[in-house]
Design a binder for these strands. Structure first.
Lengths: 205, 205
DNA sequence: GTCTATACCACGATAGAC
DNA sequence: GTCTATCGTGGTATAGAC
């Protein structure tokens, strides 16, 4: 059973979230940067400005904390996909695809470290955490598979390339950016266009 | 100072390497699977068939063990690049590129878990380990950058795409495969051709 | 809701017998 | 070259005061 969460998602006037929300933000950043196992609760608490024991008022365990972060990361991705879908429902297939690529990348960089932490820590997350989020993760991947299938049925995606393979290499290109893309220095739109361009026509001169 | 390494790289007749070599193999697999921090020396020792303390005869510390593994992974990649280069020195640019993609992927899957472990654990490796291998890592990346530059000078790679970006998305596609590619079930050659095809012409119908 | 204090355990690492 | 035994540290987690 979960702890009672007082004032969930409330923002303080003094600039920045408090309590549970702030723990999530800080922990997601640290998990992203150092990895789950290498980040101690003492570090998280210290960065938040409290003591390690106090974290247990908000989360039952370190695993549950990670689970909440990865869950939110997945929620953001799914929501981004839905918005892209709604915004381009009647557009031509390539416009739809471009919007989804843009949405995926935006979710990786514009919604805090949750999504990026999902990409980097899912691999080595404890089994209980993986089991808790794998269902939604599979659902998100299925959305992309379905999108690609539609593109193939529309005749814009080559029909001799396995859809699963296309999705995996596309995800590889997009998700690897969490290791190097710096949105202070690079333009997200240009990056999204580059990914889209590579997917359709490649980089041939 | 390093421990003396008796019989380095020797293979026993009884099937499989012994001593130091066997520790490296086992540790690389476990680091790849669970991550560096989450893998204990006791686990490694147990999988090798010895006790934790005995590992210190072969390696000065856990960090040094990881460093040796990542170093070897990088060595394999560099060697694979060199072989591809030598084999296609007089070939046309696209054949050269295809050979390098094939060599990179082959190195990820045909030379034990060293290269794959490099991909997955470098991100969160301790600073001392990163510093020890970052030079060779940078050199490997520079080889690819130089290759892409030559392709652009040859007029086969579009000149309006930043070379660094092309390399990063390409690496993203290739390296993400350590998370899902199973060479028991998939054909490495087909995968390599798919990556090459995506890079040049994309998946447009 | 956060604190102090602490239990309990697993970890990396060392020493010395064999 | 591997063992046993152990040290010291730092981890997660809990209990109870405030």
């Amino acid at each position: 059973m979960a702890s009672p969460s007082p004032n969930p998602d409330r923002l303080e006037a003094s600039g920045g979230p408090e309590g549970r929300q702030r723990i999530l933000d800080v922990a997601a950043s640290l998990f992203l940067e150092r990895g789950y196992k290498a980040t101690s609760l003492r570090e998280i608490a210290s960065a938040v400005g409290m003591k390690a024991g106090s974290l247990y008022y908000h989360f039952a365990s370190k695993e549950v904390l990670l689970q909440a972060i990865l869950q939110r990361g997945m929620d953001v991705m799914v929501e981004a996909f839905g918005e892209a879908e709604a915004a381009t429902r009647d557009a031509d297939p390539r416009t739809r695809f471009a919007a989804h690529v843009r949405a995926h990348l935006a979710a990786l960089f514009e919604y805090g470290p949750y999504t990026a932490a999902h990409v980097t820590t899912f691999r080595t997350a404890p089994p209980s955490v993986c089991e808790a989020i794998v269902r939604e993760r599979d659902a998100y991947e299925a959305m992309w598979t379905e999108l690609l299938r539609e593109l193939r049925d529309d005749g814009v995606l080559a029909d001799d390339i396995p859809i699963g393979l296309a999705r995996l290499t596309l995800f590889g290109s997009m998700n690897s950016s969490v290791d190097w893309f710096d949105r202070e220095r690079g333009e997200l739109d240009f990056f999204a266009e580059t990914i889209t361009r590579q997917f359709w026509t490649g980089f041939s001169a």
